[in-house]
Nucleic acid binder design. Structure first.
Lengths: 221, 221
DNA sequence: GCATTTGTGCGAACAGAATCGCATAGATTT
DNA sequence: AAATCTATGCGATTCTGTTCGCACAAATGC
């Protein structure tokens, strides 16, 4: 029988039975691993952050990490989840349901972008994780993306209720289009083809474009 | 002095001076490498296609490959370029400038999709290549993407001339939005979260969405 | 003809992620 | 207390992309 599944280590490092000394030790190890990983990802970037280095900083052998995590990319996913949480909190703090929909969307991308700008490396690697052979990893990143798309859809839905939007529009499809447009811009940015400002502008452009629509509109100015 | 830069091996394997026996030999090797790579990518997928296996099938040692190619991903880029060329040819064969713009766009994505459907693996890995540490690789994939975006922009531009489109719209931005929307759908598809049909539908939906626009339109039905 | 340069090939070696078998300490059962 | 089970840890090993130093052969210059 398999002893234990290093399925996912909880973000908080919380433990199930605080009585069991083994589990407690494990939880502490997980916490140290996460700290080390975050720090090293930040300092050297994902690729340069060796698993051995992470292990060393966490005070253990490299192979031991695999007791807690299935792959290096899993550590990345955990970091991404935290980052997303942070971006959402930042957005929610300044968001008001009464603001015009287009503006709310723009604000959201700003919140997200401000955080990602501090972690250009993770932005790229997040996309790479999407192509990871182990579907458990790629699926989790895609799930994170879906959550963001869901939030965007929620905003759009609110806009529809307020009459900001054409009621016939597919809110989810629109959210996806917005999200993927942003990703596209960020890939260019993370590859140095776009400055941070240009990236932001391009994202804004995508939002404007979607809100205007391509088809010939009768209301001109 | 550096002996020679394995910059890019020409798609056709053409040689500069057919007199030089060394260059000729090299060209032949390159051709064999490309054949082997294509076959093995197709048979086992990119990740499972070992460089040693490719080299063996090409009849040489693994390290020799690096005389002709800078990395495994470069082999991928070459394959992608060919695939793109093929998709374009297929599209151009059936395309007519008189068709409605929206329909032309849809047709293009169909052509492209039909080809990618036969290479789901490459579809994913192309995205991964976008995050490759060596910017020479990622830049080349992004350049391929930009070419596609350019074609889309060209179609849209034609549509604008015909009066199919709102003349105020940013054609390039629209092309980018379309392209990235398609990519997003394909990631889901390649990860098994979307059936091939659903992927196609989602792409079509993105096109429709962009052509309709999100903002409240006065012309309802 | 001889030295030099250049394009190509090879086997050994390296680094990094991931796996394996064994060890051990804490918990559980009898 | 003994036996067993379980969560954790570790060093050795495997697999893979890539680099290195050397060898060789075809071209070029003198």
């Amino acid at each position: 029988m398999q002893p234990r599944d290093p399925a996912r280590i909880s973000t908080t490092g919380a433990l199930h039975q605080p009585e069991d000394g083994r589990l407690l030790r494990g939880a502490r190890s997980r916490a140290r691993i996460r700290e080390a990983a975050r720090a090293l990802f930040q300092e050297r970037g994902f690729d340069a952050a060796t698993l051995r280095a992470i292990a060393a900083r966490a005070g253990m052998g490299a192979s031991s990490i695999y007791r807690h995590v299935r792959s290096k990319h899993e550590l990345l996913v955990l970091e991404l989840a935290d980052l997303q949480e942070e971006a959402w909190l930042d957005f929610r703090r300044q968001d008001a349901r009464t603001t015009p929909t287009r503006e709310r969307i723009q604000k959201f991308f700003q919140s997200q972008h401000e955080l990602l700008a501090r972690h250009p490396d993770l932005t790229v690697i997040a996309i790479r994780a999407t192509t990871y052979p182990d579907s458990r990893i790629s699926a989790r990143v895609l799930a994170l993306n879906d959550r963001t798309i869901g939030l965007l859809a929620e905003i759009l839905q609110g806009g529809r209720a307020l009459g900001d939007l054409d009621p016939r529009v597919d809110v989810l499809a629109a959210a996806r289009a917005l999200f993927h447009g942003a990703i596209g811009a960020r890939i260019s940015w993370a590859n140095g083809l776009l400055s941070e400002g240009a990236c932001r502008t391009e994202i804004e452009g995508t939002v404007e474009l979607l809100f205007r629509g391509l088809g010939r509109a009768p209301n001109s100015s």
